[in-house]
Write a protein that binds this DNA or RNA. Structure first.
Lengths: 221, 221
DNA sequence: TAGATTGTTAATCGATTAACAATC
DNA sequence: TAGATTGTTAATCGATTAACAATC
């Protein structure tokens, strides 16, 4: 398996899905699983799954398959879900609040240790057990706790300003929910999460089931 | 431009980003824009943008560029953002609540007209001006209002059950936030939104900046 | 006109899928 | 052993990028 280019992004995106499925299998007490079984459950090609698992460093045994507990542990470990990253979140609006309430986050490699907001109505309260602090505390806290991950859930207008503050504080990876292309130094990683992109795919596919897009025709003149 | 295969998904995912940028340009009063400018702002290749815009049916003028208002209107129209789809949402937990509060949704082609939840604490209240109803009202309301889009924000355990109910009610496209591969008839479209996939990409890239993944070595024995 | 930008065709790149040998 | 499944190499497919002609 060639690792020189790193793990392909599509592979990385599928691995968490395998984990979710394997957790259920493990709960049901399965001890081995084949790529065929995983593929049937997740509507994916077995060969692709085998390749993805190989990227994650997991090997199976011909005729037998993969041992479920080891496979799950191995993939989780590969994804870094064992040594959880600490993170801060900026923007305690409705989306920010939702992420703070996502219990599953912990089991998926990220723990939000503090939130920040400009609104005095929100600061010094706790949302889902996470303290909300005023922005002026950000740089100090990130520095002291050596936090590397920032989650950005502020409106588009303030996204770049907050981003700059995060970078200044020492944040090295930003999970960005604002529909804006952030400018960052190239030492900082930005992962954009654009819900509307996904929605666009949905509604476009829906529209084409109603009235399939017409093919361009020859000019009849 | 070949439309026989439909518009590529990556193109579809980029189009909303262009809209956001074009809206800002339009507000600033720009009347034309070149692919070069868009590309610089969004960190994308100008050729790719030109191709994407052609897929959306937009033409520019050599040396001049694209007229901003027409381009914005054209792309929004292509994405179906003018005739908004009505949708229901099931699962008024923290994520569901966040989506109900997303004002921008309206401008992005979807209006949530009702929410559903099993919990009696939530039903018959309004969250962000949207009524929350008990599940038993779902089939009737979807049928009467001829709603085609369902947003699924329930826990993984109940996702398939709720999905089945949606399908039975006549929903034709499901925006699924549960980390589960739903089984649906092939007349129904499922768009999966898995936040943890995105998070996995982020943390993997972050880890590799700390300690670049080692290449497999020859066995030294 | 000259230069910039679009539109389109061709080349490249990378991911998916298929084929098949190795193995339990 | 025979058959199923893994592991790996080759073929295919599709998207991105490059090259270049058309045009204002």
């Amino acid at each position: 398996m060639d690792f020189s280019q790193g793990v392909p992004e599509p592979t990385l995106r599928r691995l968490p899905t395998y984990c979710h499925f394997l957790r259920r299998l493990a709960q049901d007490g399965a001890d081995v699983v084949s790529c065929r079984q995983i593929g049937d459950a997740l509507h994916l090609d077995p060969t692709q799954i085998r390749k993805d698992l190989a990227y994650a460093g997991m090997a199976g045994r011909p005729k037998v398959g993969y041992p479920v507990p080891e496979l799950l542990a191995g993939v989780e470990n590969f994804l870094g879900w064992n040594n959880t990253q600490q993170a801060i979140l900026v923007g305690a609006g409705s989306l920010g609040t939702a992420l703070l309430g996502y219990k599953a986050m912990d089991r998926n490699g990220v723990r939000i240790v503090a939130a920040f907001d400009t609104s005095p109505d929100k600061t010094f309260q706790a949302i889902h057990q996470v303290k909300v602090l005023p922005m002026r505390k950000l740089v100090d806290l990130v520095g002291r706790m050596q936090i590397h991950v920032g989650i950005l859930t502020v409106p588009a207008e303030s996204a770049q300003t907050v981003c700059d503050l995060m970078v200044q504080a020492g944040i090295r990876a930003i999970w960005n929910f604002a529909p804006v292309a952030l400018k960052v130094p190239d030492t900082v990683i930005v992962q954009n999460e654009n819900l509307f992109s996904s929605l666009a795919v949905l509604s476009s596919r829906l529209q084409s089931t109603f009235q399939p897009r017409t093919l361009p025709e020859e000019d009849p003149s």
